[in-house]
Each structure stands twice: as structure tokens, then as C-alpha cells.
Computed example of a mutant assay.
Amino acid sequence: MKPVHFISGLPRSGSTLLAALLRQNPRFHAHMSSPLTGMIDVMLGEMSDRNELAAFITDAQRQRVLRGLFASYYGEEFTADVIFDTSRRWCSKLSVLNALFPDFKIIACVRNVSWIIDSLERAVQRNALRPSFMFNFQTGSTVYNRVEGVAFGEGLVGYSYNALKDAFYGEHAHHLMLLQYETLVRDPAMAMAAVYDFVGEAPFQHDFDNVHFDADEFDERTGMPGLHAVGRKVSAPDRVTVLPPDIFRRFENDAFWRNAPSNVRAVRVV
């Protein structure tokens, strides 16, 4: 099995940009997301005691089956030496990953939550004629409805945020590094050097002025053209929020990773 690491964290926080940069290294495979977390959930359920035949399945067999999912999914057509698999759900599965790949690393992309909400709302407004899958293709909502929809515990932002805290404070936090969006876009060379150091790979000279990534077909199918668009040159956007002030203030203190005394597991934050 090839070395496997993971990209996770919060939405709209630079994971697609990170994957696009990692792909510049011919030794690496990375993409915007994969279906493996869902496949693992299904297999764990089928191998649980809700299946009356689970009495014949040992933990060693469970481990082989789940590792086999990775080996089969990343088969011979993937010629890269190192795999980076992406899903916002990986932060909720550190215990599972620790049982499968004891040496794995997970890079969690994070960002000021107010600006995550702002980025999602911008995407909605940019595609005003295309109701989105993110809000069940509803057409009559306001920004307040949409924010509630993504912020609750099972929502796009709420679930990812809770999963990140689960990983950050959990016993397997030594596998975790947090990469702040602000660092990635303002000092990409330093950010990528930290990623390479964290995963134990030799440095690589990235081209931050010529970044390429194509997810147009996926974005079209979800009703959000341009959702995963990556600018050709890595740069920090200068913008004014499109959110009402009360919504922006609601989330502006949620960056718990910036509170050094609360980092009880000494997680690396870049």
C-alpha cells in the first residue's frame, strides 16, 4: 500500500488550492474530494453487530477489508508514490485511520468562520439563477435561512467544525496539522514547506504563479459553477463582506485554534 495522508478541515478554507499545489509534485496524487469516507461508513455498518453474521468477522478482517478499499480505489492507474485523499469527514475518523494507517498525517484547512460563511454566500449570489444542492435547491430562502442551514450540527459548516474540534482535542491529535487559509494565500511557500515537513517528504519547488485545477464538471452538476475554481496565481483576496453585520459578528470568535492555551494536544497550527 502506498503512503496515504489526508486533507480535511473546514469548507471554503483552501483544501482545493492545497490539492492543486500538491498535484504539481509528480510524486503526489491529490484531488478536491473522494468517496472513500462514505464507502468506509457503509462497510463499518455492514460489519457491525446489526448484521447477524458479524459474529464471524474479526477486527483483523475489518482492518483488511477497509485497507482493501483504499488499495482497490487507488489501484494501478494511480502512479503517484504518495496519496493525499480529501474529505471534510476525515477529521471525524482519526480513530479509524489510526487503526488502518498508524503513520498517517492529516492536514486540516481552517479559516475564520465568518469568512467561510461569506464565501458560501458569495457563491450563492454569483449563481443566483442556479438553485444549489447545498440548500436542497430551495428558491425562497434568505441569507439568514441559508446560514442556519449550513451552521447547524449536521450542516456543511457545523459538521466540519465539530469534526475538527473532535480531532483537535482527541487522543490522536498528534496526526493532525492545521493549515490556516490566511497563511496559505499570503505565504504559500512557508505553508507548503510546513506541509512537507509534517508529512516527512523532501521539499519541492512549487510554482505559485501557475496553479491549475479543473472541477468544472462537478461544479456544474451541483448547480454551483465555479465553486471549486482556483485562481491561477496564489494571492490573498481583498474584499468587504457580503454578510449582514450581525451574521458576521456571530462567527468571528469561533477560531478556537488561535487560542494557544486551549491547544492542550500541542497541535501544529501553521
Rank of each mutant, 00 (worst) to 15 (best):
S8M: 03
A163M: 05
M47V: 11
P245L: 07
A20C: 14
I117Y: 09
G140M: 13
I247A: 05
G200Q: 11
F198T: 02
L178G: 06
G223A: 11
T86I: 03
R12S: 00
G158H: 07
T139N: 09
A30R: 07
N253V: 06
D238Y: 05
V185W: 00
V4T: 01
A236P: 07
A215Q: 08
R130D: 04
K2E: 00
N98P: 04
E217L: 15
P26K: 02
E201C: 12
E46C: 08
L21H: 03
E76H: 10
R122L: 12
F101D: 08
F104P: 03
K105G: 00
L129P: 00
R268C: 11
M224K: 07
L129N: 12
I83N: 04
F135W: 15
V234N: 04
S72Q: 01
G149K: 12
R130F: 06
F78S: 01
F84L: 05
D85V: 06
S8K: 00
A173V: 08
M1L: 14
V234A: 04
T86Q: 08
R146F: 11
P26W: 08
L179D: 02
I83R: 06
T37W: 01
V240C: 10
S119N: 09
Y74M: 04
Q205G: 06
Y196L: 04
M39A: 09
L94Q: 01
M177G: 05
R239P: 05
A191R: 02
V270A: 13
R130A: 03
L21D: 01
M1S: 15
K105E: 01
R64D: 10
D81E: 15
H228C: 09
F152V: 12
R64V: 02
G226Q: 09
F133K: 13
T79F: 08
F256A: 06
G68D: 00
W115D: 13
R50C: 14
V65N: 07
T16M: 09
E252N: 13
S48C: 10
R12T: 05
V147Q: 04
D81I: 01
S92E: 14
A215V: 04
A54T: 13
F137W: 15
V199C: 05
D118N: 15
F78Y: 15
Q61F: 12
F78K: 04
P35G: 11
D41G: 04
Q125G: 11
P245K: 04
H206G: 05
A215L: 02
S160W: 07
